[in-house]
């Protein structure tokens, strides 16, 4: 399907460290980008252009208007129609490169579905906006000996570290435990300068290309970049003594039972609910019995609006709730719709 000497990749394979051999390796590789927002969208776009043969794109969220200043894969109609980000991103990237396989998954990545969603990947790039998913990715990477690249961006700063199992350091050498809610700055509390996550996504794509062709750093470094004040810092992070993941090989986040969880989503007044029992819901039945508020349906979700709140329910029971103001109100709305 993919000829490495294809004219479209000529300027890339001309770069001696890549060459035709490197370009062929890119074409044979599968890379998963988890989170297709600001950093992940930029990464995915550049990897599609670079000729990664199979691109898996996982995202749980819908496009919103306040994403548009930084999330380069989406346009105003995506936000108006509240399209699932993974699907909108895939549609956009299929126009960028029709020669590669692009596989979107509209899903919340959790311990119960990660093996299936990331099956066959050679590398995972972090485009997430939360610590919980990163701890899960870190565990999964060591359990399966697959490299991943941690990428973060908030305010005017970014941070990046390739993680290369079976060797540490890993994410938990940097951050031993997930901090309690409210401790880390988020795009909601600190804002984010639009180009910063895009720049971090571009750096992650460059690292991804290096890792796929076997040109990654022998000892991966942590890089911290303050774009606003132009401070770039490289740290040779030591393996933390007794690190549960990369030293002891205990994968507590991978082995966790997925419970019903309500989380706040970075970037807007939005909550996500993931039910404990992730069976399949009959969306048509739920839609037919709902007598309150306006509802609209698409093939993958139903949307219900009531009293300034908007709930989008997917067939796996997951829901996104906007405009609730606080968690309890979001949960109550969900329970009324689903009948929990």
């Amino acid at each position: 399907m993919l000829a490495a000497d294809d004219h479209r990749y000529r300027r890339q394979s001309l770069f001696p460290p890549i060459g035709l051999a490197g370009q062929r390796r890119l074409g044979a590789a599968t890379v998963a980008v988890v989170g297709c927002g600001a950093t992940g969208g930029a990464t995915a776009q550049l990897l599609a252009r670079a000729g990664i043969g199979r691109l898996v794109m996982v995202d749980r969220d819908l496009v919103a208007e306040d994403n548009l200043h930084r999330q380069v894969l989406f346009n105003e109609s995506d936000a108006r129609e509240m399209r699932p980000k993974a699907e909108a991103a895939a549609a956009h990237l299929r126009e960028v490169n029709s020669q590669i396989k692009i596989e979107p998954a509209v899903a919340h990545l959790h311990a119960g579905n990660i093996d299936e969603l990331l099956a066959g990947t050679d590398l995972v790039v972090d485009g997430t906006d939360n610590v919980a998913t990163r701890f899960l990715l870190n565990d999964w990477a060591f359990a399966n000996t697959i490299p991943w690249i941690y990428v973060g961006a908030v305010g005017g700063e970014g941070m990046l570290m390739p993680v290369a199992p079976p060797h540490g350091p890993c994410l938990r050498c940097l951050l031993p435990e997930p901090p309690p809610p409210g401790v880390l700055a988020t795009c909601d509390t600190a804002g984010v300068v639009g180009p910063v996550p895009a720049a971090m996504g571009a750096m992650a794509a460059t690292e991804a290309i290096k890792l796929v062709i076997g040109a990654g750093e022998r000892e991966p470094r942590l890089r911290s970049i303050d774009f606003w004040h132009w401070r770039v810092h490289t740290i040779a992070l030591p393996v933390r003594q007794g690190c549960p993941t990369c030293v002891e090989g205990r994968f507590e986040f991978l082995e966790a039972q997925p419970g019903s969880r309500l989380t706040e989503i970075c970037g807007r007044d939005s909550y996500q609910i993931v039910p404990r029992d992730c069976g399949s819901l009959d969306l048509a039945w739920i839609a037919s019995r709902w007598k309150g508020g306006n509802q609209t349906r698409s093939k993958s979700f139903i949307r219900i609006e009531e009293g300034g709140m908007r709930l989008v329910l997917f067939a796996d029971g997951r829901a996104l709730i906007e405009g609730a103001g606080e968690a309890g109100r979001a949960q109550a709305f969900y329970d009324r719709v689903v009948g929990a």
Binding site: G35, V151, P197, I235
Partner: peptide
Amino acid sequence: LEVVRFVGGG
């Protein structure tokens, strides 16, 4: 001293 804060967003 260099104090590098973990960056969580994305």
